[in-house]
Design a protein around this nucleic acid. Structure first.
Length: 415
DNA sequence: TCTGGGGTCCTAGGACCC
DNA sequence: TCTGGGGTCCTAGGACCC
């Protein structure tokens, strides 16, 4: 007996743009883009002109002269995104949120209460439309992978249910790039080998696929092409890393440029790590040069850290090694810091000896305890008076950013 | 004319240990 | 002297996703 199709994938349509059109009715039916220097989201009317997220604002205006740019109501995005996901939670606790506007749910255990999966999906869509005023597309299938594909096929504002009896016919007619994990590079490789559809992918020989894409990737894609997706709904996922980055345009590779930027990035990351008591052991920096090539350097410490100044200093050392390795590169266009190997500390007190331990291994720096206390003081002041109330000495709070900090926060996952 | 910022996972080589 | 296997961790790079 085959399993029933009980996995839902729900995806709010053009989410940020839809919220803007909800808040300001004069924007409805018109091409709009959230953002300015860069497009953060585009309405369907704008997408029809080829406008998409990540696109430079100038380019978008060229493609669509009547495009309306709106600043963005980030608090409302968070509020409405949370509310939409909460509607799913009214039907089943088995909800896995993927991002602010997207989630999986397994309704196998609640069909006796609310009807078939298709009926549940319809109820969810109706409620989100009536209560929040937002369009949402839902795919229903036997696996997460196929449910996600179905929701993409259903867009905009639609429902697609894939009957297990005919799922392979449905899947095999689709273009390969709809498969999760096939991006531009992999698609190009497949197309170069005459593989355009999921069906053609499914009929490839394992050896050919492994040669083309590597063994693990090949096996994974072959499984998905036959709709063998073993992934289950995961309600609570722990995040593996926390990072921040800043595009710089074109700046000289000089300390007066990278020091304040790294301080700012380290400040943002370390504050999050301390707030969740999740210090990390591995620090990675990425330096992107003017030609968009990027280089990474990382170091894994004996003990986890979450102190702003320590993170900033390690990051600066790593950036120095990059610049020393590439002496001909005099212009940088982006700096990034990421902290991984995150540990879990129930109590921040545990980091006391670790700060001292770090001190022991890196003699000549200031006392770790003092740094820890300084961070706690800054955290406390910010908790009471806001982020801008206080900063570290050489951190440039007034750094100009192409993307507002409020938008960045939306993308942060809970540690 | 150069895509911003937050993430995940995989690969391959080398160090090191048994 | 040359040969071998297996496992873990670290590092650098790359593809992909939202």
């Amino acid at each position: 007996m085959e399993t029933a199709a009980t996995i839902l994938h729900a995806d709010l349509d053009a989410f940020y743009a839809s919220v803007e059109q909800l808040l300001d009715p004069s924007l409805r039916g018109r091409p709009i883009a959230v953002g300015g220097g860069v497009v953060l989201a585009a309405s369907y009317e704008a997408k029809a002109f080829g406008v998409h997220s990540g696109m430079p604002g100038r380019r978008a205006r060229q493609l669509c002269p009547q495009l309306i740019f709106v600043g963005g109501h980030f608090k409302d995005y968070q509020r409405l995104g949370d509310a939409a996901i909460a509607v799913l939670g009214d039907f089943t606790p088995l909800v896995e949120r993927i991002s602010i506007d997207e989630a999986f749910a397994d309704v196998a255990g609640c069909t006796h209460l609310f009807g078939s999966p298709a009926e549940i999906a319809n109820s969810i869509r109706r409620r989100i439309k009536e209560e929040l005023g937002l369009p949402i597309s839902i795919g229903v299938a036997r696996t997460k992978h196929l449910a996600k594909i179905a929701s993409q096929v259903a867009k905009p504002d639609g429902l697609a249910v894939v009957d297990p009896a005919t799922e392979l016919e449905f899947l095999h007619d689709l273009p390969v790039e709809l498969v999760w994990g096939i991006g531009p590079v992999t698609r190009a490789r497949l197309v170069a080998n005459g593989v355009h559809t999921v069906g053609q992918l499914a009929r490839m020989r394992r050896q050919s696929l492994a040669r083309l894409l590597g063994r693990a990737a090949g096996e994974k894609l072959m499984a998905l092409a036959w709709n063998r997706d073993p992934r289950e709904i995961q309600m609570h996922r722990r995040v593996q890393s926390a990072g921040a980055q800043s595009a710089l345009g074109r700046q000289p590779a000089a300390q007066r440029v990278y020091r304040p930027t790294l301080r700012h990035l380290a400040d943002r990351i370390a504050t999050r790590l301390r707030a969740k008591s999740r210090p990390g052991r591995t620090v990675t920096v990425r330096v992107r040069f003017a030609d968009l090539r990027s280089v990474t350097r990382s170091v894994t410490l004996d003990a986890p850290i979450s102190a702003t100044s320590i993170l900033a200093e390690i990051a600066e050392q790593l950036v120095c090694t990059v610049l020393a390795d590439f002496p001909d590169e005099t212009t940088i266009s982006l700096l990034a810091i990421s902290v991984s190997h995150l540990e879990e500390h129930a109590d921040l007190q545990l980091e006391f000896p670790l700060g001292l331990e770090d001190e022991r291994r890196r003699p000549g720096t200031k006392l770790g305890l003092a740094r820890w206390q300084a961070d706690r003081a800054v955290d406390n002041i910010r908790e009471r008076f806001g982020w801008q109330a206080i900063g570290y000495g050489s951190v440039a709070l007034e750094l100009s950013h192409s993307v507002p900090d409020d938008f960045r926060k939306l993308a942060e996952k809970n540690l």
